[in-house]
Nucleic acid binder design. Structure first.
Lengths: 211, 211
DNA sequence: CCTACCGATCGGTAGG
DNA sequence: CCTACCGATCGGTAGG
């Protein structure tokens, strides 16, 4: 699924070009780095861990990345692109404000909780490890992401479903959602779908009737 | 302020005993460790950093702690005791449910945001670094902390101020609050007091009149 | 609590 | 992308 995009770039059946192979290897490294950074944390993960996870030797990742920090940056950028795309898709559907909120909450939670969804959690919890200069590139994308939420909150307020639609409210909302990664365990008691429903209910000031 | 408790243990004017001096040094190490763990993260902080912060040489902290992990555990336990005590004090005041909630939110946020309040943020964000065996000791204290919130939520629901009072609701509430450490900057735009007020408003399903 | 030290490991590089 | 390697640093210990 993650790969279908890549695969579609080459004509069917043709052997991949050298550049494509290289891109694949790079993508594999980012994926492995994301998983390890999430599981063990950036500092506790070694380049050797990442290299071995994709069948390389310790020095080889530096052929694809200049430094460990560049790998972190790549993971974070991928996480941001992923969650932003998911959110835009969710918001695009023609639905009522409430239904659109629910779709966005579900999209956000999925990107954080689904097995293999490692990029965004790394983005959320490894800021400290990122050098100042690299943050600017990330903040630009982050702003676009938050703008989608701000638009949603404005809409909800106009519909009388939310008391306030300012920045602090958005931070409370995203805080409640992002915190779910701390307690959610797959297959245990609540599904992502159920948590999304409960979150919507928690966020909105008027319960309204179901659905 | 943090020290007045300690000082009160000895009779006024008397020289501290050897055991008290030792306890003070240990407490200094915990404080320094808390600050550094918070700023740089557990993995990125070295024993040497901590030692130098209190004027010791690199090997000396091991006279007080068996390992770096034991230092982390000490920081976390102190964080939990601190936030639990603050919360119990806040909840103890004879007030309306809404006022009690506000006091608890303020207490929780203060323990996380006030300058020098490093223990709880470490507790929140360094779980990964703590070995399994040490978690049990911490979880026992954590349960007592969460029980206070559960009681508060039950009360709010009975008063018709909250739609639900189950575990997921508590997790949303604490998520929104704990996330504030990610965006709050002292002296910038919002005070802790203001954020507490906004959080209460966000949490409750009925706005009611001011105050 | 210091001095002196150790084994292990880490991010990164040169040279192919 | 591998081999071979380097300088630096780290958590921890012995012996006082």
């Amino acid at each position: 699924m993650t790969r279908s995009g890549k695969a579609a770039q080459r004509s069917a059946g043709a052997a991949p070009t050298a550049a494509q192979e290289e891109g694949n290897r790079r993508a594999e490294l980012v994926r492995a780095a994301g998983r390890l950074f999430r599981e063990k944390g950036y500092e506790a993960t070694t380049i050797r861990d990442i290299a071995h996870a994709v069948g390389m030797r310790s020095g080889s990742p530096f052929y694809h990345f200049k430094s460990k920090q560049e790998m972190l940056k790549a993971v974070m950028l991928q996480g941001l692109e992923q969650v932003r795309r998911a959110l835009e898709d969710a918001a695009a559907g023609k639905r009522s404000p409430r239904e659109r909120l629910r779709a966005m909450v579900r999209a956000h939670l999925s990107t954080i909780l689904e097995p293999g969804a490692d990029f965004v959690p790394v983005l959320l919890y490894e800021w400290r490890a990122l050098p100042d200069e690299m943050r600017a590139d990330i903040i630009a994308v982050k702003d676009r992401y938050e703008a989608i939420w701000d638009a949603m909150l404005r809409e909800l307020k106009q519909a009388g479903l939310l008391r306030r639609d300012d920045t602090v409210t958005r931070l409370f909302v995203l805080g409640a959602l992002n915190w779910v990664v701390q307690w959610y365990r797959p297959g245990e008691r609540y599904s992502v779908e159920e948590i999304a429903g409960r979150a919507v209910e928690f966020i909105l000031s008027q319960s309204g009737e179901a659905r």
